Every structure is written in structure tokens, then in C-alpha cells.
Amino acid sequence: MPGLISDNDEHRLLRETTARIAEKYGASYFLERGRAGGDIDELWQDLAVSGLLGVHLPEEYGGGGGGMAEAVVVVEELAAHGMPLLIWVISPAICGSILNNHATDEMKRRWLPALADGSKKMAFGLTEPDAGSNSHDLKTTARRDGDGWTISGSKYYISAIDQADAVLLVARDADHSTDSRKALSLFVVPTDALGLSIQKIDTSIVSPDKQFTVFLDDVRVGPEALIGHAGNGLRQVFSGLNPERILVGALCGGIGNYAVTKAADYARDRQVWSVPIGAHQGISHPLAAAHIEVELGRLATARSAELFDAGENAAEAANIAKYAASEAALKALDQSIQTHGGNGLTHEYGLSELWFVTRLMRTAPVSREMVLNFVAQTSLNLPRSY
């Protein structure tokens, strides 16, 4: 799916390798596993063996030595074949990036090679039922307990924790917080830890990656669970949020491309009154507009990855990429369904079932309203609204 993006030789090889694996399984595999609540272990292992889970992680820890630009290629190409894998964005990308930037060498050696070779997965525990977008107001609390911590609280809308060996948990640090400042600490908590339980959230999303509420009832962790420095978690967690936004942009760019490609193929073949329906501007113009917007979102995503990999401040670019790509993907998917008519709502064509996972990307990991707040306040220097 090159489009306006000009791949270098390395990215072209990555894209071709990802495409071959995706074509081996097909979009129907992803949807069937999503409907049945099944796993995608075979696909995950093939991606791991080909080095596609850790392309952005350091070679010394089992990765490919690349950056976000390489991760974008893999996530985008999988989604362009009808496989928007949330767990890829969460485990190797968000968690892998935070660990790579802030964990001890011992923790990196324990987790990064396993995330890269697919033998372990990690969920990301930030959002809560009451905190919403205000990550400063987390209620889940870690308190010093001997040489470790006891953690209590709950997390909401935590993706794929049922598949994960651990959760990278963000908690308010009781010992470093004051009435005026709520300090955060980050921990790697095993999912089989005593006192940790999960409850599935019933949603309309068709995906192998399900959503869960996580309950933490006096979960005890040792000193080895802490990431970086206690009380410094807010800065640490933001090192994973820009990659998250960039890769959601990639995921949405892939979905948008998948939707437009399916619609264009259908519009060339489907005939009404002896001509292909794609000959009518009522069909062709909306698809052309959808393609333009998808490509613009892809360009924004590629640029945000470039800035991030160069060590520049990528916050504005990452938020813009996430916003542009998610808006474009939803519009493209809707137009693709409309182009297919009634067929757009059948399981056979695999479009309508992607609606809710695409719609989720308009709200998560950061809502479009919060992106607009960020741009208004940071880029335009307008007064804060909150």
C-alpha cells in the first residue's frame, strides 16, 4: 500500500514480509477469531519469527534496532489486510517503549526479548472508571510496604489483559503525593499476582483483543516491579503515549486503505444498468475524497514517526496524526460500506464488523476532543479550558 508514501528499501522489505504473513491468514481469520473470542497465536508467532514484533526495539534486547518508522510500516500493513491488532500497539510498542526508556538493564533483559520474540505479552493499565482523560487524578494507589509496594484500585478498558503475562500499571504513589501534587509510579505487575482479577467488558467491538476491567485488591509487588524512579511516573508514561498515538495513526491508515481498496474493487466489478457503479460520480467522488484523506493521515503519521525517531518533540505531530488518521479511517469505512450497499453489512465482505474497532480509535487512546484541546492550547497558545 505505497500510495503517497515512498518506502526505502528496508521499509519495502518490511512491508512485503508483513503482507505475506497477513495474506497467509486473511481478514476472515481476524474476524472469525474476534467473533468466537479466539486467539491469534499462530499469526503472532509468525510475526515474531519474522522479527516483526520488535522492529523498533534495540538489537541488544532482541529487537530489530529500528524505530517508530519501522513499527508504523508493520502495524499499518497488518491493518491494510483487515487486521488492526491492538495488542501490537500495546505490548511491543507502548510497554516496550516505556521499558526501553526507563527500566533497569535487568528488567529490560527480562522483558524486552520476550516481547520481541512473542513469548510474552504485556498489557497497559492507565485508564480508570472515574479519571477519564485526567491521568493526574488516578485513584489506584501504591503504598510502601517493606521493600516493596501494595497496590489497590481498579483500571477500566484495559485491552487484551487476558492474553498478557503482566500489566504495566500506572498508580498514584501515596508516599510521594501531596494535597497539591499527585505523583505517579509505574510497575510491572504479573497478571497472576494474588489480588489481581479481571472482568470482561461486553462491547460491540469485533476483535480478538477484548476489553476488561481490572481489580487490584492489596496486590503486593517487590522492588523489582518498579520502573524507573518512584514518583516520577508521569514523565515516564508519556514516553509511551506518543508511540501509542503514532501507531494508532498507522492502524487507522491501514484500515482506511483496506476500506477504500475494497470499495474501489467492488465499484469496478459491480454493474447496474450495464455499467460499473464506479463510473458514477456519486460513487467515485466520495471514494476519491476518502482516499485523499486517508493518504494525508498516513503522511502525518509517517512525519510524526520521523520526528520521534530523530529525538524531536513529536507531541503535536503524534496528536495530529492520530486525529487525522482516525477521522479519515472512519469516513473511508463508512463510504466503503455505502458503496457495497446491502453487501456492506454482510459478514462475507468483512467491512461492517470493523466499524466499532475503528470508531474506538476516535475515542481512544485519546479522544478527538482532547487532541483539539492540546492543539488549541499548545500549538495556538489559546487559554486553557481545564
Rank of each mutant, 00 (worst) to 15 (best):
E353F: 06
L354Y: 06
V167W: 04
Q199F: 05
A166I: 01
A225F: 05
P383D: 05
R359C: 03
S91A: 12
V206A: 15
Q338E: 11
G228I: 00
D9I: 04
A289L: 07
M370W: 01
S207I: 08
A290K: 12
Y156W: 00
T150N: 03
A193Y: 04
D217N: 14
A230Y: 00
A225N: 12
V73P: 07
G350R: 14
V170E: 07
A69L: 03
R15D: 08
D162H: 14
T178E: 13
G222A: 09
A71Y: 11
G311M: 06
D269N: 14
I201E: 14
F212M: 09
V214W: 00
Q45L: 04
G65Y: 02
H291I: 00
P365G: 11
K210F: 09
E60I: 00
G278D: 13
G125Q: 10
S133C: 02
Q236D: 10
G51K: 12
R270P: 03
I277F: 13
P276I: 01
E369R: 11
Y266E: 07
P92W: 01
L85N: 04
L126R: 12
A325G: 03
A174W: 04
R298I: 01
G228E: 06
V189D: 15
G3A: 10
W273L: 07
R35M: 10
G148L: 05
A174N: 13
D175R: 13
A79E: 08
R368D: 12
K331L: 07
G118Y: 08
Q163D: 15
N381L: 10
Q199T: 07
P286W: 01
S207V: 07
W44P: 06
G350T: 04
D145G: 08
Y323R: 09
